[in-house]
Design a protein around this nucleic acid. Structure first.
Lengths: 188, 188
DNA sequence: TCCTTAGCGGATTAATTATCCGTTTCTGCG
DNA sequence: CGCAGAAACGGATAATTAATCCGCTAAGGA
């Protein structure tokens, strides 16, 4: 079994413990940022360190599992945005959601920025996200709403950059303005 | 003496060793990213670990000392940009230089993004940079070249964001396009 | 109920970070 | 020039953190 596999077909106790660990990790992360120690997670979840390492062989694997849920939400948002009748509205909604969700889940910000994923599920979701963004961008391009040279990867990177800019001590109002600036810059 | 003080009024050997350590740290960083271990720096510089810790009590202090030189360059560029006859040209030059220098020196990227500096010199340079940017933005604003609500801090953050976007696997061409997008977005 | 085996837990080992103090090296002064 | 005092070096060592390994527990099918 892949250590980062999703909850299906796990032994009952294993699934329980896995959930406890993810909850504990989320909690730790909310408290102290990205640099959670495996030991701390284990203690918070009331399990042994070995158990944490078995489920998540590496820190990156743990982060990806944490980010998976947020990533699903983001993919859903992107798909919805791609279907939005008004392309401009859809694009704005996607950027806004992408920013907000990254800010609320540092693990997702990390995973979105990472060049290559560790676990297969993340890879799939990333592909889905890229596809949805590409669809939206295609529509926007044919309508002349954006620069023609903009790719889905560009948008992903710019979104990560935007997140970084906001994380560096910006207020919510600042974030809105930066979003506005990016949207304006994307036009042809 | 402040451990991060600049080379003046140090004992001759001390200055020598300090320079060796900074060079070693730069080298290590070029090789393996931001997460250089003090031990590795010490070994590379041919000094004891204690010496490294005496000069740079914390990793952040070492990073700031590394970044200081790049930061000086950036300040000089910003001052020159603020004097540029054509405001648009000056702004473009500043952003381009700010991006390039951050990419070439990860320590600077870290320091620029940091909310509060550890050593006084960095603080001074940061202030100078902010002042130069503010001057440039004031001029641009009165000429109507940029959105009126843009502050020097905004520009700093956006520049850090841009750096992040590029670092995430973008090519040089991508970087130019992102720069273009940001510049376009800054207009009123 | 029993047997097999996946999975748990934490003691143990490895790696890293940070401190402390005996020794060396510099520099001002006689 | 050579000595005294101070400043700085260096690495052994303590403290913290990461990662592994294996004996034991308990889940779930026969």
């Amino acid at each position: 079994m892949s250590p980062t596999t999703n909850a299906e077909s796990l032994r009952a106790d294993s699934a329980r413990v896995r959930a406890r660990m993810l909850a504990a990790a989320r909690d730790r992360m909310a408290a102290g940022g990205l640099d959670l120690s495996m030991n701390a997670v284990a203690k918070a979840a009331g399990v042994g360190v070995g158990t944490v390492y078995r489920h998540f062989p590496t820190r990156q694997a743990l982060l990806e599992s944490l980010a998976a849920q947020s990533l699903e939400t983001l993919v859903a948002t992107a798909v919805a945005a791609a279907r939005e009748p008004d392309v401009g509205t859809g694009l704005a909604a996607l950027l806004r959601a992408g920013l907000r969700i990254q800010l609320s889940d540092p693990a997702l910000a990390e995973v979105l920025a990472a060049v290559n994923a560790v676990c297969a599920e993340t890879l799939d979701l990333s592909r889905d996200l890229a596809a949805a963004i590409a669809t939206l961008l295609d529509r926007a391009r044919t309508e002349g709403a954006i620069r023609p040279d903009l790719t889905a990867d560009d948008l992903r990177r710019l979104l990560c950059g935007l997140q970084h800019a906001v994380r560096i001590g910006a207020t919510d109002d600042d974030a809105d303005r930066y979003l506005d600036i990016l949207l304006a810059g994307l036009r042809p």
